[in-house]
Every structure is written in C-alpha cells, then in structure tokens.
C-alpha cells in the first residue's frame, strides 16, 4: 500500500517534470520567433516611411506636373488663383541654412577637435566632454527659441537690413547644434590615429602644430569628412530652428537677410495649418518630405561609404 502511494508520487513527479520540460522547450522555440518579430519592426518602419512617401507623392504628381515641381522657381502653394509648386525655392532655403551652418560648424568643430585630441590635458578633456554632451542634448526647439529671441536681435545691431526672419540666424544656430557631433566624431577619428605615428613626427623635430596639421589631420581625413557629411545631413533635416527663426517666404535667390523657408519648415507649416485631407497642398507636403528624405539618405550613404573606407585603413 505504502509502496503504491510512493510509486504514484514518483509518477506524478515525472509527469510534472516532463510538462515543465515541454514548457521550457516551447519557450526555447518561441523566443527567437518573438525576437525576430521585434527586429522586423525596423523593417516595417522603413517600408512604412517609403510606402507613405511614395504613395502620397504619386497622388501629388497626379495633380502637379513633375517638371513644374523639379524645375519651377516659384513656390506659392497657398495662392488661391494660381498656385505654383516649384520646389527649387525650398531647396534654396535649405541650402542657405546648411551652408551657413557649415561655415560656422566646420572650422569651429575642427579647431575644438584638434585642441581636445592634440593639446588638451586629461583634466581639461574630462571637463569639456560632458559640457559638449549637454550641448548635444539640448532640444532643437530650445535652439530655435534662442535663434529667434537672442541671435536675431543681436545680429540686427550689426546688420541693420536683417529681417526678423532670415537665413543667417537659424544658420548660425543650426551650426551650433551640429557642433558637438562634428567635434566628437572628428575627435574619435583623430584618436584612432596610432600614437606611434605622432611620436615619429615629434622625434623628427616637428612641433605639435605640424604633427596635428600634417600628420594627424591627413591620417584622420576620411573620418573627419564622414563626420562633416553626417552633420550636413542633420542640418538638412533640422526642423524647429528653421521653422521658428527662418520664416515662411521661400524665394529663389541668394539673399540671406530676408525671410526664407526650408523643406522641413514647409512640412510643419502645412501640417499645423488646416490643409484639408486630399487637397493638393496636403499631398505637396509628402512630395517635399520625399525630396528631403532622398537628400538625407544620399548624405548618410556617402558618410557611410567614407567611414567604411576609413575603418579599413587601420
């Protein structure tokens, strides 16, 4: 009798154990599938973006000719009588801001990167790097506010003809915004240059400046270029600074003191106004978005190619 009870107990234990094992096996089989599903979200996002942009842009080109869009120099979508959709003024606005931003950010960024990687002591670096991290973490809306309420009024003292909305102020502030990323990526590239090369040059009697400019800079060149291209891509895609401080009057000229509009700012303008679903203006937002997407994709692709080459060097 007692033996039977014992046997039942053992059998029950075995059944439970095998059930546990079954569950474990199931988990073991299920988890990779769930993980793949999670990883597929990224693919779905890319396809979602492409689908959205292509589909709605197609709708746009049903209503506006491709030739007018790409070669037209007038962008008056809100004109009730005779709206025109030439994207060049918007691209011009984006280019103005991007170029000004680069004029500010590239020399400054490289100077700071050279200082940090070649001259600064360990303690100075320890102080400056976190500060740059803070600068990188400031939301763009804050930069936009800064451009509109601080940089523009100050610039107006020096350039009396400067309008409230212009290309210079957002350009400078976009430069400020991308500065940390140029610095940290360029510095990484310079740090990747082996110390032995530096020491070789120093032993030949070169000064630190000569080492920095003639040895380190050429060796880190592709990394630095990649950081700049990446920064250009960010400047092109930057939205809130140009929306707040750039204005909403795109024009196809080279003036930087008057109001401009970038591709990104136009998208925000349309979506925050009440352009009804299905109107030409509504679809134009996607066409502009698609153009912007192509621009940044191209820049990222170039940066990726350059940095890949750079990685092979060492």
């Amino acid at each position: 009798m007692a033996q039977d009870i014992g046997r039942v107990h053992v059998i029950r234990h075995l059944i439970e154990k095998s059930r546990d094992r079954k569950i474990k096996k199931m988990i073991e089989k299920m988890m990779p599938i769930l993980l793949v599903l999670a990883a597929s979200v990224c693919i779905a996002t890319t396809f979602g973006i492409l689908f959205t942009l292509v589909f709605e842009t197609f709708e746009f080109f049903q209503r506006v000719s491709i030739i007018e869009y790409f070669f037209g120099t007038e962008w008056y979508p809100f004109s009730s009588g005779n709206p025109s959709f030439g994207v060049l003024p918007l691209i011009m606005g984006t280019l103005k801001v991007t170029i000004i931003a680069m004029i500010v950010a590239v020399p400054f960024g490289l100077a700071v990167a050279i200082y940090l990687s070649e001259y600064a002591s360990g303690r100075t670096r320890k102080f400056i790097k976190p500060v740059l991290e803070i600068l990188a973490g400031v939301p763009t809306i804050v930069y936009g506010f800064f451009a509109l309420t601080f940089v523009t009024p100050i610039l107006q003292i020096f350039i009396p003809s400067l309008k409230l909305f212009n290309a210079i102020s957002p350009g400078i502030v976009v430069g400020m915004m991308i500065l940390p990323s140029i610095i940290s990526l360029s510095e990484d590239a310079m740090n990747a240059v082996p110390n032995a090369i530096r020491e070789g040059a120093l032993a030949l009697g070169a000064t630190k400046l000569e080492v920095a400019l003639k040895v380190v800079l050429p060796a880190a060149f592709s990394g630095i270029i990649a950081s700049i291209v990446l920064a250009i891509s960010r400047a092109i895609g930057e939205t809130m600074i140009v929306t707040l401080a750039g204005g909403a009057m795109p024009s196809f000229d080279f003036s930087v003191t008057g109001s401009i509009q970038t591709m990104t700012a136009y998208i925000v303008q349309v979506s925050s106004g009440d352009a009804g679903y299905g109107t030409v203006i509504y679809y134009s937002m996607y066409a502009v978005g698609f153009t912007l997407f192509i621009f940044t994709l191209l820049m990222n692709f170039i940066a990726h190619k350059i940095s890949k080459r750079f990685r092979e060097e060492y």
Partner: peptide, 28 residues
C-alpha cells in the same frame, strides 16, 4: 544584414519624416 542596414538608415531619417509616417499610418 538587411535589418542592420535598416537600423543605421532609420537613425539618419529626419524626425519630420517620422512625423509624416505617424500622420499617415497612426493618425489617419
């Protein structure tokens, strides 16, 4: 490899474009 390429691509897409995605897919 495709997933990896996707991730690095998505990291470079401007946030406005994500806004368009959200507007089309989630909002509408």
């Amino acid at each position: 490899d495709f997933i990896r390429a996707n991730i690095s691509n998505l990291a470079g897409v401007p946030s406005v474009v994500f806004g368009l995605l959200g507007l089309t897919i989630f909002v509408r």
